[in-house]
Each structure stands twice: as structure tokens, then as C-alpha cells.
Design a binder for these strands. Structure first.
Lengths: 213, 213
DNA sequence: TTGGCTACCGCACAAAGATGCTATGGTGAT
DNA sequence: ATCACCATAGCATCTTTGTGCGGTAGCCAA
């Protein structure tokens, strides 16, 4: 592949004239990047981007009208290969998680240094997901928070934990017994001890506690 | 606060003698960092770290015996303020997610440049979560994947969605009927339509799809 | 107005799950 | 050597679920 001479086609969606021109100048000057479009609102971006087909779109979140991540959701649905790098002043969890769910590949704060931004664009193009450390922390906490809640989960023995995992897969007792090479009555025993330790009285409650932590 | 003159106390847990000495030399030379401990296995780290109380621990994953993230889980439980930065050659999803669940704050590949590592240590100490872009992508995909699956969830009517929500709360049919002011047989009707739309055959499967999608 | 769709309701029955009681062999700590 | 705890197992009984096969009333578009 002639990757080295391929230029990454970049588009920008941001309603702030100043920021847009600053970034477009930055991208224009950078080697290996090619600016192919500038938009000040989600609606026009939604119409034009599928024609321009940039490799990567720098998307602001707080646009007038449609939110940036909603725009990403729709574009991503139609053009799954198009990459999106969110660029925003907001570091609230909702904007972040909505963007990730919409299919954004990275999420940077606008105060990110220019050099870091260019690096991030290349990261995304190479399959990475650059993220400001502050935002990454929120994502990480999303996973680790449960561990505090789950003092009860920690009390489970390895076998019980494995059993719970099978339960969460939806298998009936019989099949869990086969998979774990134990009798169905042993499975029933696990049901008892696990339910008691988790303070639940049904499979659903146990699974929910397990999945949420 | 005299933060500027405070040194970040760093400990290392890695069974590879070469890497350990390389990193310890790097940390020793760096200003603002102070090396307070070196361990070659999880067991000894588990015993000594609570006494040393470093601010941050650089933890290898593939240790002989106990895995690095298991070590983190136990230490984090006892010392929630202690921070952990995973440092590994493995970029598989299991190691990553196990580490995050265990309470790790960051996750870097060992081939990360020295300068970037020092930067990452400071990031963690300041509340960030540095992560190699390759790893960050896996985390990001964790969020975006479901949105495709949940096309089926979108097909549910409001009543069905509410029913599914009740289902996820673990209430038996009878109670769901009361809460929704419908008969138990209508609840059974919803069971049918919802299961069909989600392509599942049990309450547990439905709830899992609902919670993850 | 006829046909199709949705929300609602009913009965019946088989499969799966929840729980009470009991019991054996192993392992590790006191 | 005793105690606690784990993994395993069995049996009985009752409740909850899953599903097949119906039905009525309302609403909307052809």
C-alpha cells in the first residue's frame, strides 16, 4: 500500500468561527492531512459529509440545534468507516458516553495542544482511540465503580462465581450442570448459597447484581 | 499545599529483572518521583505495599503465580487511595477489562516511550487515566458495539419497554401486572412479543440484552 | 367499510426455578 | 483433633415461567 503518500482527509464541524479557522489552518499546514470540508452545524454536515467522504471528522459537541454526538450517530450508521474525533470544552460524563455510544473513536478537550491534536488524528486513523486523561478517567471509573459496591460479589467462592457467570448467560440448570461437570442438584446448591450471599431471591436479581457489580 | 515539593512515591512490581531495573533507573532519575519499592511477584508486593504506602504502583500483569490485576484488586480494596498503572506487553481485552474492574487507573503497553511513561505517572497522580490508544480503542468499542445490537430494543413499544424494565427489576409477573395496572395475562402477552423481538427465550436473556444494549 | 394492526385479556399445561432438609468427603486453621 | 468451610449430591414440593391457542375492542389507512 502507498500509505505513506496517502493523505488523511479531514473535515471539521464546529459552530465557533474562530476555532474552526484555527483548526483548519493547523490541519492545512500539517503534512499528511488534507482538509476536505468545514461546517458550522450538524444539519449541513449530515447532508454534505456522505458526499465528501472524509476519513475523519473533527466534531464539536455543543452545536446549535442537533448535538454533535447525534450527528455522529446518524453518519456512523450510514458510513461505518468514517471516523469521528470529538473535540469539546465539556468534560461531563453524559456528553462523553453519548459520544462513545454514537460511535466516536476519540474524545479530546479543546484545550489540547495543537501538536497533540495532530497526533490524535493520526492515532485515530491508525485504529487508536486518543482520549484526554481526564475523560479516560471517567471511562475507567465506569468499570471500577462497581467493584466497591460488590463487596457481596467478592464473598463468592470461585465455583460460585463461575456458576453465576453461567447463570448470566441464561443457560438452564441442566446445561449449567453439564458445562461445569457437576450434577443438577449441585447447581441447585449453588443457587441457594449464591442467592443468600447476594441477598436475592431470583435468577434475574442475581444476574442484575452480577452484571452491574 | 506544598504540592510542588511533594514527591510522588512510586513502586514497581514486575518479574522481569531487566525491565524492573530499567524502569527503576528511569524513575530514580526523574524529578518529582521517588522510588519506594521493587517487587518481582504479586505475593510479596501484597505483603509489603501496605507498609510502604506508595502513591502509585507500576504493575506488570503477567507475573508468576497471581496475576497483576488480582493483586491490584486486593490492594485496592484495602488501600483505595493507592493508584495503579498497569504496564504490560499484552493488549488482549481480558487483561485490560480485568485490570479496569480491579481498579487500575491506567494501562500502558511496555513499548511506551520513557518520556510518555513519566508523563503517564504524573497524569495518574493528577486524576487522569492515561491509556495507550490501542487499548483505549477496545474500551471505546465496548460502548459503541451495543448500539448496533440495540436496534432490536428500539423496535419495542413504550409499554413493552416499560415491561422489560420491570422484568429487569426482578419482579414476578403478578407484581409487574399490579405495577403496570394490567392483567397478568397481558404481562404474558408482553413476554411473548418482547421475547420474539429480542430473539430470546428466557427472562434472563432478555434482561441481559436490555442491560447491555 | 373492510382489512390489518395494536393493546388488551383468558385458559391450560409443561418446563424451569426456588427452597427446605439432609449428607459425604476434603482442606486448612486453631 | 476439632471446627469451619467448601464442593459435591439427593429428594420433595411449591412457585414462576414459557408458550400454544384462543378472544375483544379500538384505531387508521386503503
Amino acid at each position: 500500500m502507498a500509505d505513506k503518500i496517502m493523505q488523511i482527509k479531514v473535515a471539521i464541524v464546529d459552530d465557533d468561527e474562530g476555532i474552526r479557522s484555527a483548526i483548519s489552518a493547523l490541519v492545512r499546514r500539517a503534512s499528511g492531512l488534507k482538509l476536505t470540508g468545514e461546517f458550522s452545524d450538524a444539519e449541513s454536515a449530515l447532508k454534505e459529509l456522505p458526499k465528501l467522504m472524509p476519513d475523519l471528522v473533527l466534531m464539536d459537541i455543543n452545536l446549535p440545534g442537533m448535538k454533535g454526538y447525534e450527528c455522529v450517530r446518524q453518519l456512523k450508521g450510514a458510513q461505518p468507516t468514517m471516523q469521528f474525533l470529538m473535540l469539546t470544552v465539556y468534560e461531563d460524563s453524559d456528553s462523553l458516553f453519548n459520544s462513545l455510544r454514537a460511535g466516536a473513536s476519540g474524545y479530546l478537550l479543546k484545550r489540547t495542544a495543537s501538536a497533540r491534536l495532530l497526533e490524535a488524528i493520526r492515532d485515530v486513523h491508525e485504529g487508536g482511540s486518543p482520549m484526554s486523561p481526564q475523560l479516560a478517567r471517567r471511562v475507567v471509573q465506569f468499570f471500577s465503580k462497581p467493584s466497591l459496591e460488590s463487596a457481596s460479589l467478592a464473598k463468592l467462592t470461585p465455583a460460585e462465581r463461575e456458576f453465576l457467570n453461567q447463570l448470566a448467560n441464561g443457560y438452564p440448570y441442566k446445561e449449567i450442570a453439564d458445562r461445569m461437570h457437576i450434577s443438577i442438584d449441585t447447581v441447585r446448591s449453588y443457587v441457594r448459597t449464591v442467592y443468600e450471599k447476594l441477598h436475592v431471591h431470583s435468577r434475574t436479581e442475581a444476574v442484575v447484581k452480577f452484571l452491574r457489580g
